[in-house]
């Protein structure tokens, strides 16, 4: 199905998460790079050596959750916008996503959070809008969502026609 629509089914997404949800008490990168492509900036950008692609850069990236600190550096270095960071905070969760639209949402704004099909599933709170020269114009949004949505939330709705 994903080959036809670009939408990974939930089971596929879940496989990229730590098996034990408690691992997410600390922030962890979730990599959704489902097909082999010649690419490896995720591996080379990670300062903690937590992502492995290997010499054949066509191989899919593999993450070592023990090493990943959830810093988010791979998130804005991935040209496929295929990485996010997830962290559980009691009944909430904090999602870090790459964002390349102007204007950026404001801190403390409420935003529509969408799933991988582009449907609005919940409302999130913008906790931080992280920008930096090294990010090469890709902002990192920190969005607080309800914990129930950790396997579904992927980005925020972009307002049309600006």
């Amino acid at each position: 199905m994903i080959e036809k629509t670009g939408i990974p089914p939930r089971e596929m997404v879940k496989k990229e998460f730590p098996k034990d949800e408690r691992v997410l008490i600390n922030p962890k990168a979730i990599i959704e790079c489902y097909k082999e492509i010649p690419c490896n900036p995720c591996e080379t950008s990670c300062p903690f050596d937590a992502i492995h692609v290997g010499e054949d850069i066509n191989k899919r990236p593999v993450i070592d959750f023990d090493k990943c600190t959830g810093c988010g550096i791979c998130v804005f270095n991935c040209p496929g916008l295929a990485i996010s960071v997830m962290q559980l905070k009691e009944d909430k969760a904090l999602l870090k996503i790459p964002y390349e639209f102007i204007p950026r949402p404001q801190k403390d704004a409420l935003v529509n959070v969408v799933n991988r099909s582009g449907e609005v599933i919940t409302v999130g709170l913008v906790k931080r809008v992280q920008e930096g020269k090294k990010q090469k114009q890709t902002a990192l949004l920190h969005i607080e969502i309800d914990r129930d949505f950790i396997y579904d939330a992927i980005t925020i709705e972009v307002p049309h026609g600006q």
């Binding site: 990974p8 496929g80 916008l81 295929a82 969408v114 980005t155």
Partner: peptide
């Protein structure tokens, strides 16, 4: 590449 497809699909482009 699927990553490119997923990127626009999640923004609502079928």
């Amino acid at each position: 590449y699927l990553v490119h497809a997923s990127k626009i699909q999640r923004l609502g482009v079928d």
